[in-house]
């Protein structure tokens, strides 16, 4: 089995605050991340892809095609943004790293069939490093 992993970066701010809780409950639950003015991270996103090794190209995935997909679906929309205000999904959903991963997976999955053949590369997992100490992983299946 061959797995290709590509790393991307985006810098974004967010605020963890849920409308379902009171001000004091939010402060208790999210701590510093509940600061009303938000705060930011240099996020590192790793996208892992598996699939058959194409005998002509010698590739599991064309990295340029993957770069273009991740750039248009994720990086361009997230980089240098305040996630809560600037990214559609996070107007409803609290932008925890867990939720950011779900949104990224959904966005990639929606466009995947239009750029890759059915028997081609498959999204295996995505990992989000919020800081050097926090790593979140979502396996596609």
């Amino acid at each position: 089995m061959t797995r290709v992993t590509r790393r991307y970066k985006f810098a974004a701010s967010h605020r963890l605050h849920s409308a379902q809780y009171s001000e004091s409950e939010n402060r208790e639950l999210y701590g510093k991340c509940n600061n009303p003015h938000g705060h930011g991270h240099d996020y590192l996103l790793e996208v892992s892809v598996t699939g058959p090794l194409d005998p002509v190209s010698g590739q599991v995935v064309n990295v340029r095609t993957l770069d273009n997909l991740v750039s248009t679906q994720v990086v361009q929309d997230f980089d240098y943004k305040f996630l809560n205000a600037d990214v559609r999904e996070f107007q409803e959903v609290v932008p925890t790293s867990e939720s950011i991963l779900r949104v990224i997976q959904k966005r990639l999955a929606a466009r995947w069939p239009s750029v890759f053949p059915v028997d081609g590369p498959r999204l295996e997992s995505i990992r989000l490093r919020e800081t050097g100490r926090n790593l979140f992983e979502l396996r596609a299946n």
Binding site: M1, T2, R3, V4, T5, R6, R7, Y8, V60, V63
Partner: peptide, 13 residues
């Protein structure tokens, strides 16, 4: 590169 790596496990899945 730092931004691209491949894992190979031979014939195993």
């Amino acid at each position: 590169t730092e931004d691209l790596y491949v894992d190979c496990t031979g014939d195993r899945r």
